[in-house]
């Protein structure tokens, strides 16, 4: 079966050790996590992990079920790229000489919908959000300036369907008995 990029959105409690629990499910099966982002959700004390992995559909379904067994995990959503809106954030640090290099840095920043976050005596810091290809393209264009540092965040994603998280959680709760 063909391997594809999947985005897992894991909705959890705010517990110490959950990240360890989650990563064990992947490491046991020798799966490399491509990116991982943790964040609060709109519900108090409910967190979301956004994990990007490349694997077959069969395997991702099994992994999702293993994850849902972990106590403290409410729900695991599995999405293909077409089902989500996703973004990553990248930061680029260039030497201040980049401004005076003769190439129009401002135009590059505008063309890429990036922005300048900070300018100091010796460096200039640029920020861009977008898909990995977008942030990567900007990196390529900035390389001639002598990029001092580059960093990209993990993916954050939202599903396209309009169903609110609260409804998903309520549905899950109602599908189970507890005693």
């Amino acid at each position: 079966m063909e391997e594809k990029l999947y985005t897992l959105i894991i909705v959890t409690e705010n517990n110490i050790g959950l990240l360890n629990h989650i990563s064990v499910v992947f490491t046991r099966r020798h799966i490399n996590i491509r990116s991982l982002t943790a964040s609060e959700s709109k519900i108090k004390d409910v967190y979301t992990f956004t994990i990007v992995i490349k694997m077959t559909e069969e395997l991702v379904r099994k992994v999702a079920k293993q994850l849902e067994k972990i106590i403290g995990i409410f729900k695991v959503f599995v999405y293909e790229d077409s089902e989500i809106i996703h973004q990553e954030l990248a930061l680029y640090k260039l030497p201040i000489s980049a401004i005076k290099s003769g190439i129009n840095l401002e135009q590059i920043v505008r063309n890429h919908n990036a922005r300048v976050l900070d300018i100091k005596e010796d460096y200039i810091l640029i920020e861009k959000t977008g898909h990995k290809t977008d942030t990567q393209n900007l990196l390529k264009e900035l390389q001639p300036f002598g990029v001092l540092q580059f960093i990209r965040s993990g993916r954050v994603a939202m599903a396209k369907p309009m169903k609110p998280l609260d409804d998903h959680l309520k549905e899950k709760e109602e599908a189970y008995d507890y005693i």
Binding site: E68, I71, F74, Y176, Y178
Partner: peptide
Amino acid sequence: RISGYYPYPK
């Protein structure tokens, strides 16, 4: 009952 734990599927 414990939050985030679903022992008995209906």
